[in-house]
Amino acid sequence: MRSIAELLAANLHDVFGCRDADRRAAMIGDIYADDIVFTDPDGVTTGRAQVAAKIDKLLAGIPEQVTFTDAGPIYLGPDRGALAWRLGPADAPIARGVDVITVDAGRITSMVTLLAP
């Protein structure tokens, strides 16, 4: 079973940061609960397949050389964690945000993405 810190890292790098669709799909199956609820400024998405489709669409709109990177420490609680990230170069990111996850039985059951203005 992965720790909350490992789940946060896998979510950022092996899901949102992964350009290989098969590898990304396998990781989604490994770290997300079947009924994951993902909330971001665009709304609420429920279930692995719908979240995967949302991520596919996001990555299709971002040039391959633009990547997600950690942008601060990981924050941990008993069943939650948070990780700040940036999209693009450190000195001029396209977007910045924080992912807050809730974990149960070693899988992400909910994720909220907050974007910096």
Rank of each mutant, 00 (worst) to 15 (best):
G97Q: 08
R2E: 05
M111P: 12
S110Q: 15
S3I: 00
P89Y: 07
G97A: 11
A116N: 15
L76S: 04
T109I: 09
T69P: 00
D30Y: 10
V44C: 07
I55H: 07
V103A: 13
A92M: 12
V44D: 13
R48W: 05
P73T: 02
D22N: 15
V37Y: 02
V51A: 08
V112F: 05
F38D: 07
A21F: 14
A49F: 04
T45A: 01
R23T: 02
I108N: 08
I36V: 15
L58K: 07
R107K: 13
A95T: 14
D79W: 03
V98R: 09
V51M: 05
L58H: 01
A10F: 01
I31P: 03
I31L: 09
A82G: 12
R96N: 07
V100H: 05
I94H: 14
L115Q: 10
P63D: 03
R19W: 06
R24K: 11
D20L: 07
P63A: 02
F16P: 00
E64H: 06
I108M: 11
G106L: 13
D70I: 02
G81N: 05
L114T: 14
R48Y: 02
D30K: 13
I74Y: 02
P89E: 15
S3T: 13
T67L: 14
R2Q: 04
P73E: 12
R2Y: 05
R80H: 09
R80L: 03
T45H: 02
P63R: 02
R48L: 04
G47Y: 13
L7M: 01
A52F: 04
E6K: 04
L114Q: 14
A33Y: 05
R48Q: 10
M111Y: 07
T109A: 14
D20T: 11
L8G: 03
V66Q: 02
M111K: 15
G61K: 01
D30I: 06
P73A: 02
E64M: 08
R107L: 02
G81A: 03
I94G: 07
Y32F: 14
G72T: 01
P41S: 03
P41T: 08
D34V: 12
R2K: 07
M111L: 15
D30G: 09
T113N: 15
T46L: 03
P93N: 12
G29S: 13
I101C: 04
A95G: 14
V100G: 01
D30L: 09
A92E: 08
M27F: 06
R48K: 10
D56H: 11
T69M: 03
T46M: 05
R96G: 10
L7W: 00
F68V: 03
F16W: 11
I31V: 12
D70S: 14
I108G: 09
Y32E: 07
I94E: 04
T67F: 02
A33H: 13
K57D: 13
M1V: 04
